[in-house]
Amino acid sequence: MLEQQLINALSLGSVYALFALGFTLVFGVLGVINLSHGAIFMLGSYVALLLVNKFAMSLWMAMLLAMLVTGLVGLIVDFLVLRPLRKRNAPHLIPMIATIGVAIMITNIAQGVFGAENKRFPFGTIPEDSFTVGNLHLTAVQLAIVLISFALMIVLLAVMRRTQLGRALRAIAESPKAAYLLGINVEGLFFLTSFAAAALGGAAGVLVGLSFNAISPFMGQPMLHKGIAVIILGGMGDIRGAMIGGLFLGFAEVLSVAYLSSDFRDAVAFGLLFLILLVRPSGMFGKVLERKA
């Protein structure tokens, strides 16, 4: 039934959009494609799982702490890896290569600590309640995923568009040197951006772990590919584009599985993305040679 598939697609697409938001935020402000974002996403799921298993913590409190932990990891990556490269005016490819190394390191550590097999949240942790409206069936997890994802996206968009902090971040996105001359704490906002982006990635990791109830050290790599596709589709560095691009990818995947075959899931989704980019090479909201916050 089409309506039910649209609900499923909204749930999946909102997680893709949330993941891509952190990705595009770092690119928009720092001008860096942070390829460790997928590993940080994976780390968020494991932190929540550990807190639930070892400390009997409620799922939502575990999610908040997972966001805090992944945010701190993003901050450490910025301080130890990206900041020294910024000071040396390293070419754009160097941070990408460096963050690939960070991603491999985090993935290997997770594999060594938790093992390579899939992990699941304990029975009873994930709410099994569901709602039925007419012919539509909506689980509590799906509703929570959509509400949390959209709430975080709306908060980020409001901060970027309506606050002094958002204006400062947009100024840095246009020109860090000019922003510094205006008295903006550029380095401090770089750190804040890395923290916020990693926290959003961690939240997406927890939501994906809840949605599929399967967590592995390798779950970050496929999500990273989709995140890159989403920010290119939406327009590099554009928050609106990340939101709409994530939803588009989720809808394309779910509908292709429902009406074609799961074997064609990625082929259909990325094929449609390719066709859109043929028409708009800069993405839906991107502009050639222009960076946005």
Rank of each mutant, 00 (worst) to 15 (best):
M1S: 14
E3C: 04
Q5L: 14
N8E: 08
L10Y: 11
S14T: 15
V15R: 07
A17G: 14
F19V: 13
L21E: 05
G22Y: 08
G22K: 06
F23D: 10
T24D: 03
L25D: 05
G31M: 08
G31P: 05
V32D: 00
V32G: 00
I33N: 00
S36L: 01
H37K: 00
F41L: 04
L43T: 11
S45R: 06
Y46S: 03
V47D: 01
V47S: 03
L49A: 09
L51Q: 07
N53H: 04
N53F: 02
K54V: 12
F55H: 07
A56H: 09
M57Y: 00
L59H: 02
W60C: 10
A62W: 00
M63K: 02
M63I: 07
L64E: 04
L64S: 08
L65W: 01
L65H: 00
M67K: 09
L68P: 01
V69M: 00
G71Q: 11
G71M: 10
L72E: 08
V73Q: 02
V77T: 14
F79Q: 12
L82Q: 01
K87W: 06
N89W: 02
P91R: 02
H92K: 03
L93S: 08
I94R: 02
I94F: 06
T99P: 04
G101Q: 12
V102R: 04
A103V: 07
M105R: 07
T107V: 11
T107G: 13
T107S: 15
N108L: 13
N108K: 14
I109V: 15
F114T: 11
A116I: 13
P122D: 08
T125D: 00
I126L: 02
L136A: 11
H137R: 09
H137Y: 12
V141K: 01
L143F: 12
I154M: 11
I154N: 03
L156F: 11
L157R: 12
L157Y: 11
V159W: 03
M160G: 01
R162H: 07
L165G: 08
L165W: 10
L169P: 03
S175F: 07
A179R: 13
A179M: 10
Y180Q: 15
Y180R: 14
L181R: 01
V186E: 09
E187L: 05
G188W: 02
A197P: 00
L200W: 10
G202N: 09
L207I: 10
L210Q: 05
L210I: 01
S211C: 02
P217R: 13
G220D: 08
Q221W: 13
Q221N: 13
P222V: 06
M223V: 10
L224E: 02
I228F: 15
I231D: 05
I231K: 00
I232T: 13
L233F: 06
G235F: 03
G237C: 09
G237K: 05
D238E: 14
R240S: 11
I244G: 04
I244S: 06
I244D: 05
G245D: 13
G246H: 10
G246P: 13
L249G: 06
L249S: 05
G250R: 01
E253R: 03
S256D: 09
V257Y: 00
V257E: 14
A258S: 14
D263Q: 12
F264Q: 08
V268F: 08
A269T: 06
L273M: 15
V279W: 12
S282R: 08
S282L: 02
S282M: 09
M284Y: 06
L289F: 15
R291C: 05
A293C: 15
